[in-house]
Design a protein around this nucleic acid. Structure first.
Length: 413
DNA sequence: TAAACGTGGTG
DNA sequence: TCACCAAGTTT
């Protein structure tokens, strides 16, 4: 046994001190409650592994009520794993548009292709094998293995962390990878080998219904007599987790360019934020600053330069865009000309719309919208662009931040 | 190990 | 307005 395994096992022993009788009573209480009060969710209609996989991927860091309509629409469009394996990426991203964490969609398709090609359509039935699928980590592998195939393995998600941290007063930092192993070892001792999928899903339902993060209702929980932190009045102290960093603010100009062919959107690069989705052209204010410096190497940049990036005040401290409108438009025009290679300068206008703000997990975008109406359709040349009819926006592969910009411009979204 | 990766809800 | 959270995985 490795040092890590020994540590994990001893920690599990430390936090889980229930007798075999208490463990049996816990299973009985939990599953009886689940049979009577468990939620009726679309992905609980059957145990099709494809249905379980799809729901579990969509549910990663995403709430049930958000997922339900996406799940229904996705399955209606792609009823089988073969359909998913072969669908064009554009349609895949259309189906995922607005759900976030878009790499999930591309990993999901990759997993489908692995299943069809590498596994010849025969599903691996254990968590140990399922983690080899793209986008399937320890939690999702455990969920699929237990729910679809009846393997007695834990599925340690945020609910399981919260529920068991409170029941057993586990004060380990759940953001540490080692901690997952301890929870997994504890749950492996508690899980009902006869009904592992129901056990895992029952914990999720309890976590959502009674043992919520903010306003727990633990006195009504069927597990109250197993709940040490509720007895001690310390529920809200669990689970313990490291604080997250605040998002960094980034300023962009967003160009809403319209021609007789429609509105110009650019496809994002293959990697990074919003990969492969479609957005108005964005110009980073800091890069614009760099470019204007390069054009005028003899001039020293001062804070009076209207294009100077606003002082970094940190997240949540909105800063003003450059103040001189004429200079601003000229600089953006120059930058766009360099980027697009278009011979004619862009007739940019500033409609003075409110800044569009959009906060991601780790950064905030502040978008200053500028518009341009072109009498003729310019050549896209090497731009990764496409002209969209306004009527096509609602069904397109757009991220939410793009829909916010469309809304600000009073366009369909 | 820590950072990247979306969005919507809540107090 | 803002911090925190929600059925996490990848690099």
């Amino acid at each position: 046994m490795s040092k890590t395994q020994a540590t994990v096992a001893s920690l599990a022993d430390h936090y889980l001190t229930w007798s075999p009788e208490k463990i049996a009573a816990f299973r009985q209480t939990l599953l009886s409650w689940y049979d009577a009060e468990g939620r009726d969710l679309p992905w609980r209609q059957d145990q099709e592994p494809y249905h379980i996989l799809l729901s579990e991927i969509m549910l990663q860091q995403t709430q049930v009520q958000t997922v339900i309509p996406y799940y229904q629409r996705f399955l209606a469009a792609l009823p089988t794993i073969q359909d998913l394996a072969t669908v064009p990426e554009e349609q895949l991203l259309q189906l995922w548009s607005g759900l976030g964490y878009y790499s999930r969609a591309r990993n999901l398709q990759k997993a489908a292709q692995q299943l069809v090609h590498d596994y010849a359509g025969v599903w691996p039935r254990t968590a140990a094998e399922l983690v080899d699928l793209a986008g399937v980590g320890p939690y999702t592998a455990g969920a699929i293995a237990s729910i679809a195939f009846g393997e007695a393995v834990p599925a340690v998600d945020g609910n399981a962390f919260r529920v068991f941290a409170r029941l057993l007063e586990i004060d380990l930092d759940i953001t540490k990878p080692q901690t997952r192993l301890v929870f997994s070892a504890i749950i492996a001792r508690l899980i009902d080998p006869a009904r592992p999928g129901d056990f895992n899903q029952a914990i999720m339902d309890i976590g959502t219904r009674y043992m919520t993060a903010k306003n727990p209702d633990e006195t009504q929980s069927p597990l109250r007599r197993f709940d040490a932190s509720a007895a001690a009045g310390t529920s809200l102290q669990y689970p313990v987790r490291q604080k997250k960093a605040r998002p960094v603010v980034q300023h962009y100009f967003a160009l809403a360019i319209h021609s007789p062919a429609g509105w110009l959107l650019l496809q994002r690069p293959t990697t990074g934020m919003l990969a492969r989705l479609w957005l108005f052209p964005l110009l980073d204010q800091d890069e614009l600053l760099t470019a204007s410096q390069a054009d005028q190497p003899d001039k020293t940049l001062t804070t009076a330069n209207p294009l100077a990036a606003p002082a970094k005040n940190g997240a949540g401290q909105p800063t003003e865009p450059p103040s001189d409108p004429a200079v601003l438009l000229a600089a953006v025009t120059t930058a766009w000309q360099a980027l697009s290679g278009w011979p004619t300068p862009l007739p940019l206008r500033d409609p003075h719309l409110p800044l569009v703000k959009h906060t991601f997990t780790h950064r905030q975008w502040q978008l200053h919208l500028l518009t341009a109406e072109l009498p003729q359709v310019p050549d896209l040349a090497n731009l990764p662009g496409r002209w969209f009819a306004a009527a096509d926006f609602p069904a397109a592969a757009l991220p939410t931040v793009q829909r916010k910009m469309l809304q600000a411009l009073d366009l369909p979204n």
